[in-house]
Amino acid sequence: MWDARYQPATNPLVFLWPVTMSTRPNTGPPTVSVDSDTVRRIAHLARIRLDEDRIEPMREELNTILAFVEQLEEVNTDGVEPMTSVVATKMRLRPDAVTDGNIPHDVVANAPASEDDFFMVPKVVE
């Protein structure tokens, strides 16, 4: 079914650039500052409608959090591998065979709108 691999991927046409940001120097007042246009763009990327009266409070909250995480700049991570798995494990393999499926009624059972085991959405093609 078309929905099985559905990912609400970020729209590649919407770019988050440019944003005022400088990552140096490491000390002094917060160097990252998100402006209200950036807040609007992120909200759109995140697919969350943000009413105008929420933009400024959200901007302040995001800047508070970004200022907090900015202290990571002072950590020397040269030559340090980014963590990909917290516990060293070997990915288990299994035969490439269907282990589940043929349950369309279950798949759509919780959908707000469905018909004949299809999800119903507003018209997307004119």
Partner: peptide, 21 residues
């Protein structure tokens, strides 16, 4: 969404995963 967005992934997420190591 912000820290994963284009241009910021390395500065935030990758940096954080290095610190996590």
């Amino acid at each position: 969404t912000y820290v994963l967005s284009a241009g910021y992934y390395d500065a935030y997420y990758k940096k954080a995963q290095r610190v996590r190591t």
